[in-house]
Design a binder for these strands. Structure first.
Lengths: 118, 118
DNA sequence: TCAGATATATCCATCCCGGATACAACGAGA
DNA sequence: TCTCGTTGTATCCGGGATGGATATATCTGA
């Protein structure tokens, strides 16, 4: 099932969606999330981040959220973003693809045996 | 651990490595493998495939294998490829990254609840 | 021998990435 | 309140990857 290929998703775009799946956040924090999630092996530069955010917003996958930070002091520069319903669906679909690729990798013996790290 | 970011790997490059992790194969078959593994949601075009193979070979991640097809009739057009030791290491490292991203997605509730497919 | 499928390879326009740069707004301290 | 270093957003540019179209050669079957 699911043979169709609706709208493709670049790696950077998925990582941004994944960071926002935890909850609303502003750009600079998203960079930190991605670096944290990937244990530092993926680090988005500002160019990639803000361009990706703009594209995701234009495609209706994320939307700007009206500040509303309760614990943080409020900073007029920050722009908060959150997933839309569509954004969550697309992120979920991509996550299932990664899950499948990971399973295939395990199947091929790439994960079970300890491959020496380069 | 593993904070360094040695050589990055494009999605197409990883999918080719993953297909070859199952065993040696020729280009056209790799396309089929990738489509099969991803349930048709990822389909490499010939341009991407052969350019990616050439780059992976130049980087020492894959190498050409001397035909040696036992069950198949032999076809002079085909060029077989297989993973090198380095290629397997790099593929394994990327697989672990995908595993981590998948876990993060599950953590954010993208996999547990059934998100309606778009 | 001829037609169609298989298989590899290259070309080209488009898109994406990462780093550099610029600029605005915040907080701390004198 | 003035200044300074930091935080945060945004744009620009060069290098590289993508994918679709095209070209060409080889295999198979009629």
């Amino acid at each position: 099932m699911a043979k169709g290929n609706p709208p493709p998703l670049t790696p950077a775009a998925f990582q941004v969606l994944l960071a926002l799946a935890r909850g609303r956040a502003h750009g600079y924090r998203i960079m930190g999330f991605v670096s944290e999630i990937t244990d530092g092996s993926v680090q988005l530069g500002p160019g990639t981040l803000y361009r990706t955010l703009a594209r995701l917003a234009a495609d209706g996958l994320v939307e700007e959220a009206p500040d509303m930070s309760e614990d943080e002091p409020h900073d007029a520069r920050r722009r908060y973003y959150q997933l839309t319903g569509l954004g969550r669906q697309v992120a979920a679909r991509e996550a299932r693809l990664l899950e499948r690729l990971t399973a295939a990798a395990a199947d091929a013996g790439l994960l079970s045996r300890q491959e020496k790290s380069a």
